[in-house]
Amino acid sequence: MIQVEHLTRNFEYYTKATGLKGSVKNLFHREKLIKEAVKDVSFCVEKGEIIGLLGPNGAGKTTTLKMLSGILFPSSGSARVDGFIPWERKDEFKRKFSIVMGQKNQLWWDLPACDSFYLNKCIFDISDGEYRRTISELSELLDVKDLLNVQVRRLSLGERMKMEILAALIHRPEILFLDEPTIGLDLISQQKIREFLRSYREEHHTTIILTSHYMKDIEELCPRTVIINHGQVVYDGGLLEMNRVMGDKKRLTIKTSAPIDPSCLAPFGTVCSLNGCQATLEIARNNLTQVSSRLLSLLPVEDFTVTDIPIEESVALFYQNR
């Protein structure tokens, strides 16, 4: 459904030194610098699949989505979305997808959301009956029935985001790009949007690319994750398998009755923390039984827990590395 190959996008920019001196200097000469926002990104998404696109701020997620929706031309590389080259901007292609940008407003600010919906209906040539069905179904699901006639600028962020999503779905796109749809929302609103996306997808089998900084969004919705850092793909696979890729480790926490001597722990694995009677070790999964039994016999262990490395930490490693 979506094929991305060696996609690259550079931006020109210039810097300004702090203060007036820098400003005056910039009046006469601006040194052009090039930032590679996206470099050599490749991945594929199957029809009906939902993937999470993760990466730290400035990693190139939004730029990638903007290229996939034809807003930006790439500097090089190619992409096909349902057979179309996005930046050719064919009308037929535009009817197939939608993009929701958490940080950008696509509704007409000074008019109620229903006016924006109606304009979308006209632009996408949707019949009255289908339009009415869609609005009543989705506004019910998103719980915004009473807000349809309120000026968009008077809505709260959460309400507005629901409207943005609704507006994006009026033409029933087969492909949906969601760029941080839960940004800045409270826990309940985030939960609501996740639930909505899940049930909507189950019913309509929409192909979705979702970006978010909330691991919960990705964990709950996306079986597969692509992580981008510094414009490059650094991981492509399931969120749960990430640990295996990162060295397949387990985390072992022990509590003893007497203070632990640091030197006796070192041979077993990496010591993450040691605080008097409590210590945390990171050890390879296949050593687990062996290490545990030796530790138990060696030290006066009172409490003993084994956990997986939290997903956030694995992801953070990908963010820092490379």
Binding site: K94, R95, S98, K104, Q106, N120, F124
Partner: peptide, 12 residues
């Protein structure tokens, strides 16, 4: 400010 996005992605 990128408000142009919303026109570029619609058949208009």
């Amino acid at each position: 400010n990128g408000g142009l996005n919303k026109y570029l992605i619609r058949p208009v």
